[in-house]
Design a protein around this nucleic acid. Structure first.
Lengths: 210, 210
DNA sequence: GGGCACCCGCTTGCATGCAAGGATGCGCGC
DNA sequence: GCGCGCATCCTTGCATGCAAGCGGGTGCCC
């Protein structure tokens, strides 16, 4: 996903990073030549990058006018969290149905352990990385490729929200760890409904924070 | 979505149609020049089309070898149906929470009526179109853009499955209509849980058919 | 006969040229 | 002063040229 072609991949990563970090604000008009100059590339690979980003709804190409960075709608946070919840609850349910939780539980425990350390140290960046890893493990464990594809996009959008809006308060970190512990427990008990309930509360915590 | 640029859009639609209809089987190697010749275009717009289709996972670009049509995995049907169920149940739940079912119910009733006619006439193609319209109305009614985006992709993938595998038996049409009636009723009663239950059964019906 | 190297044709990646479409701002007419 | 039209600059859409990577087939050598 990160090096399909040297030039096009570089352009893609460059622009995407700037969008997700909030460096390029919504509504900004960017041109292919401009980005190309910055990276020493011609328009072609930049155009490719723009097409991919357009498919991800991170910008909108309008013919012969340029590309405008998609503004974040007020409903974006709710939309993202709702979809994350839907996808992940379904993934957990499938793992329970298939009896394949055993393959994922050890990895979850390992991530959770690291996450607790980062929470204690107040290392928010690593904490967030571990948080994402935890949820991704569940998605991947389900074996549903489409869920994984969707989840990757949702992760991007949430990253963009995180940079735009406030950072998590350190006090929330411990609570999130507790949530994850409950989630892992629910999986260990093969209780998909409880997983869904706890996940819903977990998302509500984030929604409150945004 | 269907005419971003004249040439690139034509190439995109052309190739996508052939993939979804099963005309281009999984594993087939297609080249840009080949498609360009067929449509009287140069490689550039065809390349654009390929990039978009790659983003939708309908084909895979491998550098300097060509584009291979993504084969349908044996798990594809289950993956698609699971995600459809997750997304649509969430959409219905939001409509209930927001009390916005009233805006959608009349349209649902209208589609349902048409669908019954098509079922009675055994017009499978129109029936399927109405079926898709019904579900899309629910998704759109939720106002979750991301859900709509995901659902559109799922619809494409399901269309591909439908063409690859057996057609629906006419006997199923009436049953599907009954399901839709139940779904609309659940929405009218603002019972999101019942909607989810009926939807699950509805999807199981399709999964059995594949 | 078997194995290896090379060459050729295929493919795309990227740069560039040309032309068309849209927005802006200036100047003219009123 | 106000409004309209035009010219210009900006943007991208698409075609094409060139080079590089990959695979298949052939021919050589052993």
């Amino acid at each position: 996903m990160s090096d399909p072609n040297p030039a096009a991949g570089r352009a893609y990563t460059h622009v995407k990073t700037r969008i997700l970090s909030g460096d390029l604000a919504g509504g900004t008009l960017v041109s292919e030549v401009q980005v190309g100059m910055e990276l020493g590339l011609s328009r072609t690979p930049v155009h490719e990058a723009f097409l991919r980003l357009d498919a991800e709804r991170l910008l909108t190409l309008s013919s012969r006018k340029g590309a405008v960075i998609t503004p974040i709608s007020p409903r974006e946070a709710r939309n993202v969290l709702e979809m994350r919840e839907a996808v992940e609850a379904t993934a957990a349910r499938r793992m329970v149905e298939d009896g394949s939780t055993d393959k994922t539980l050890p990895a979850l425990a390992s991530v959770l352990e690291r996450q607790r350390v980062h929470a204690a140290e107040g290392d928010v960046d690593r904490f967030v990385a571990a948080d994402e890893e935890f949820h991704s493990l569940v998605i991947d464990g389900s074996g549903n490729d489409i869920a994984a594809q969707f989840y990757a996009q949702l992760r991007d959008r949430q990253q963009r929200l995180r940079h735009l809006l406030l950072r998590l308060r350190p006090g929330d970190l411990a609570g999130a760890c507790g949530d994850h512990e409950h989630l892992a427990d629910a999986l260990a008990k093969s209780d998909a409904d409880e997983y869904a309930r706890v996940l819903h509360a977990h998302m509500a915590r984030y929604e409150g924070a945004l």
